[in-house]
Amino acid sequence: MHAEITSPGRRPKGGHLGDRIFGGITWLSAVAVLLVLGAIVAMLYLGARPALEKFGFWNFLASAQWDPVEELFGGLSPTVGTLVSSLIAILIAVPVSFGIALFITELAPPWLKRPVGTAIELLAAIPSIIYGMWGLFVFAPWFADNLQPLLTDTLGELPYVGELFQGPPLGISVFTAGIVLSIMIIPFIASVMRDVFETVPTGLRESAFGLGSTTWEVVWNVVLPMTRVGVVGGIMLGLGRALGETMAVTFVIGNAHELHWGLFEPGNSIASTIANEFTEADGEIYTASLIALGLILFLITFVVLALAKVMLVRMARQAGRRT
């Protein structure tokens, strides 16, 4: 493929030029992908600069003030909301995804594997605004009437952490946002887990079974240790999705700028703040502050997604070496 052709016959003359032109066009397109990312970062930085110069990056990040009248802005409350709702989502989604991946790879009879896998992946295809509608009109009222009182009466009574499970019985809260997010990211994490579980050679599984292990012991002591890097990569991928999700969160988080300990209190996230306020923002500093929030969000997700990618590549290399 890469060897130079050194035959005595002459190649058609147009070939070389055509190669250079066509290769050049594809090269330009590939570089355009890089430029898009570079331009996004540059434009976010330029747009955010008035706010960052006025408040300073760290002060902006550490301040919970959000006062459009006085033009004093800080990103603490949306940043905390983003991190907390995503953390709740991950805490719920990881065990559930693990269960689903385990079911598909180890338990399901062959005829069931494909339909179940497809159904779970369709969950990922549903647009996020649909999750938002469902969350606002169906899930939040149900949650407020059923699950929230239950949690407040049980976990809410515990010392120290009890305060986390208090709040008005609206169903519109950081916690609800976390649950809706978890449903959205379960298919992503589950399908990565399934894929990496399937890279474990059958021989290894069978030898563990041969030693008398139960299915659970095979998964927990053989499959999981071998695929740890890939599993963590899948979780990071889900986390990256959760951090940047806009519509599903905007519907159910409540869009309040105060910080509370209670997870059942309304809050906000970076994405929901931008979605709600960007078109209404008047004044350079207001807009710049919202763009600064976008910059923070982009940096956080970039780091998380880059880590996810690095881990999944490492996993793929390991799998390649073994086979």
């Binding site: 890089l34 747009g47 979605a275 960007f278 969000l297 982009f298």
Partner: peptide, 28 residues
């Protein structure tokens, strides 16, 4: 080497928050 970088960046863009892309296009 450029292909490796493009692949990496592309996978990051694949999951980049779409609201940020909205802000970016608003600015440009």
């Amino acid at each position: 080497w450029i292909a490796h970088i493009v692949r990496f960046i592309n996978d990051v863009l694949l999951s980049a928050p779409s609201i940020v892309i909205g802000v970016f296009v608003y600015e440009i």
